[in-house]
Simulated scan of single mutants.
Amino acid sequence: MTELSEVIAGRAVGRRDAAQITLFDSVGFATEDFSALRYVKAKLPGTGFYAEIDLLADPDEPRDLFGMLLRAAAA
């Protein structure tokens, strides 16, 4: 696991190949979470390292975003 701030600062390497996944675990402070996501979103266009997805509320387990993606892929 690598901290996003370390990758942004250039002190750590992020994903090394397409088989690796990126999972963002927010800290729960809306301003920090939103700022981190805005920064990453601004860096992605033209890279081919992302896929746009619709995020839908998952009331059964709202903190399980990875599980939500797995369930959506299976559908």
Score class of each variant (00 low, 15 high):
43 K>N: 12
65 L>N: 08
40 V>K: 02
14 G>P: 10
60 D>V: 15
10 G>S: 07
15 R>W: 00
57 A>Y: 01
63 R>G: 06
74 A>Q: 14
29 F>P: 14
47 T>S: 05
24 F>G: 09
1 M>K: 03
17 D>T: 07
63 R>I: 02
71 R>I: 12
37 L>Q: 10
23 L>G: 10
67 G>E: 04
40 V>H: 00
66 F>V: 10
51 A>W: 02
69 L>F: 09
34 F>G: 15
63 R>Y: 00
69 L>R: 11
28 G>H: 09
70 L>F: 05
74 A>E: 05
73 A>E: 05
30 A>S: 02
74 A>P: 09
42 A>F: 00
30 A>H: 04
53 I>R: 02
61 E>S: 12
62 P>K: 08
69 L>Q: 15
59 P>G: 13
69 L>H: 06
18 A>E: 01
49 F>Y: 01
5 S>L: 05
65 L>Q: 08
42 A>I: 00
1 M>Q: 13
72 A>S: 02
31 T>L: 01
20 Q>S: 14
6 E>I: 00
58 D>E: 15
26 S>A: 06
31 T>E: 03
57 A>G: 09
61 E>C: 03
47 T>Y: 01
56 L>V: 08
24 F>K: 02
72 A>G: 10
10 G>M: 06
46 G>H: 03
30 A>C: 09
45 P>A: 02
14 G>I: 12
53 I>T: 08
73 A>D: 05
37 L>E: 08
6 E>S: 10
42 A>P: 13
19 A>W: 04
75 A>Y: 03
52 E>H: 03
74 A>L: 02
35 S>V: 01
